[in-house]
Design a protein around this nucleic acid. Structure first.
Length: 484
RNA sequence: GCGCCUCUAGCUCAAUUUGGCAGAGCAACGGACUCUUAAUCCGCAGGUUCUGGGUUCAAGUCCCAGGGGGCGCACCA
């Protein structure tokens, strides 16, 4: 069915969406076989087409839902042209809202317009497309072929909108900071490297938002946040995409206790804005996100889940011995704090399901967090664990420029000793701190992981539209298409 | 990077315990049908079984190498 592409209009004005028609109380009482007298214009893709000679029924789907089109030879202009259409074609239709004798709300098509032709099909109309490679590489196909996919991404949009709304109500301002950094710092991760031709210098894609945002607090933005992509040059897994979306926020005059309250309220608000409740089902289990969340120290949770009482005071040798006894692999170079966190990550984290704020991390592994006000060797830091995964990381921020320099110098020493993830020293950041940063609470939230929880998805690829995959192999389908 | 699994028509999947002419449903294409809901019915067409080697009279099936994908480990706050 080759059609004249030039005949496709440049614009098409609809009056209603399919989902609205189905939900409109004005039509709910419409009896089978009755007409409403209301004329509408709708548009979307033909998902099914049932031809009956002089009658035809079609499912027209737009991004709000579906509406049935009802056409007949006597009442529909170019009826034959309509029944010649293929599944997947985009069609605009105008006509009266009616209910068929069998009770299906429909638009009785008076006139219709071809808006685009689908040269390719969308796979099995009942079973959809299961091949994950097709689903992720050709998300446009996945969005039509598989139920629920579009809903996940609409939910993702609503989560981000809900967070912006929540933060605006608390007086936060949203900013944008550079993606290309001369020094990649603010997190323990290997960066992607790129080259800045105009500056004749290598730059790094950011691994965190942290340092620039704190400089803005120094600059007087007392409540500031950014939602943006960060890039970590690491493995791809069901829980890791090398580029992912992070929310970071900083609140002057607040400590990590305040940030805990903010975190649980913000996640609860995002849940209410999307699933409509703070209790939901995740992977078959009931997950209760209702504040307040449990608070427990790292050591308390380790003891609870392993039976071992591990404290920094035991010293590195003894801690390594006990960690190995628990089956946790640790390096000889690992200090006591690193060992403690390793034990938690390997033996405790995955077993936590309902939300927990894990508090008070070793100073050794937290170079940007402020010393704990009462526990030597520890910092005021927490991670929020939800459904067995880290959802957020936060601290009372370290503001003392001298102490911050000492910590980062130590990191650079570790880096020189071979630790590729040790944090880099950023002189511009240190200079900013010398201007004075007030007491500040900071938070980082993995938006992708939050969406996974709210959308009940176990794989991060299900919540990222175009997840990282190997480049499309040469000589495969795309190459043939280009040649033909 | 390592281990295990996987790749068959546009899509979803079959193809007998060491191996014996590669099939079905959906989509597409031609046709019938005035209330369908994955419409139904008739007809037609559709293949480098991921790629390259090897074993065998015979390979989708067994072996080797490579590629894509999945899962786990490692890595990764």
């Amino acid at each position: 069915m080759v059609s004249d592409a030039a005949a496709v209009p440049y614009r098409y004005e609809t009056t209603r969406h399919a989902g609205e028609l189905a939900a409109d109380p004005a039509f709910s009482a419409l009896a089978p076989g009755a007409s409403s007298g209301v004329a509408v214009v709708v548009a979307g893709r033909l998902m099914t087409l049932r031809r009956h000679g002089n009658l035809a029924f079609a499912e027209l789907r737009d991004w709000t839902g579906s509406i049935q089109l009802f056409a007949d030879r006597s009442g529909t202009a170019d009826f034959g042209g309509l029944t010649d259409r293929s599944l997947g074609d985009w069609v605009g239709a105008e006509g009266e809202v009616v209910r068929t004798r069998r009770g299906e709300l429909s638009v009785r098509v008076a006139r219709w317009t071809l808006l685009a032709e689908a040269r390719r099909g969308f796979g099995d109309k009942w079973r959809g497309v299961h091949d994950v490679e097709t689903r992720y590489r050709q998300r446009e196909v996945d969005l039509w072929a598989n139920p629920g996919v579009r809903d996940v991404f609409l939910l993702r949009s609503a989560v981000v909108a809900g967070i912006r709304h929540f933060l605006a109500a608390r007086g936060f301002v949203e900013v944008e900071t550079p993606v290309l950094h001369p020094v990649a710092s603010g997190a323990h991760a290997r960066p992607f490297v790129t080259h800045y031709n105009a500056l004749h210098a290598d730059f790094y894609l950011r691994i965190a938002l942290e340092l620039y945002l704190k400089r803005l607090v120094v600059g007087g933005l007392e409540r500031v946040y950014e939602i943006g992509r960060v890039f970590r040059n690491e493995g791809i897994s069901p829980r890791h995409n090398p580029e992912f979306t992070m929310l970071e926020l900083y609140q002057a005059y607040a400590d990590y206790g305040d940030i805990m309250e903010l975190t649980e309220e913000m996640v609860a608000a995002a849940a209410r804005a999307t699933v409509g409740a703070t209790t939901l089902t995740y992977q078959g289990r009931v997950l209760d996100l209702t504040p307040p969340w449990r608070r427990a120290t790292l050591e308390e949770l380790i003891e609870e889940h392993t039976g071992e009482v591990l404290r920094l005071e035991l010293g590195a040798d003894e801690l390594r011995r006990r960690a190995r006894a628990l089956g946790v692999r640790v390096e000889e170079a690992d200090g006591p704090g690193k060992v403690l966190v390793e034990v938690f990550d390997k033996r405790v984290e995955a077993g936590l399901f309902d939300p927990v704020f894990v508090t008070d991390y070793p100073k050794e592994v937290s170079p940007l967090a402020r010393d704990h006000r009462s526990r030597p060797g520890y910092v005021e830091r927490f991670e929020a664990i939800v459904a067995g995964r880290e959802l957020a990381n936060a601290f009372s921020e370290l503001a003392d420029p001298d102490e911050q320099r000492r910590r980062l110098v130590a990191q650079m020493a570790a880096r020189a000793a071979g630790d590729e993830e040790a944090m880099a020293l950023d002189e511009e950041f240190l200079r900013a701190l010398e201007h004075g940063m007030p007491p500040t609470g900071g938070l980082g939230v993995g938006i992708d992981r939050l969406v996974m929880v709210l959308a009940d998805r176990a794989n991060i690829r299900e919540v990222v539209l175009f997840p990282a995959l190997r480049p499309f192999p040469a000589g495969d389908d795309a190459g043939r298409d280009a040649a033909s």
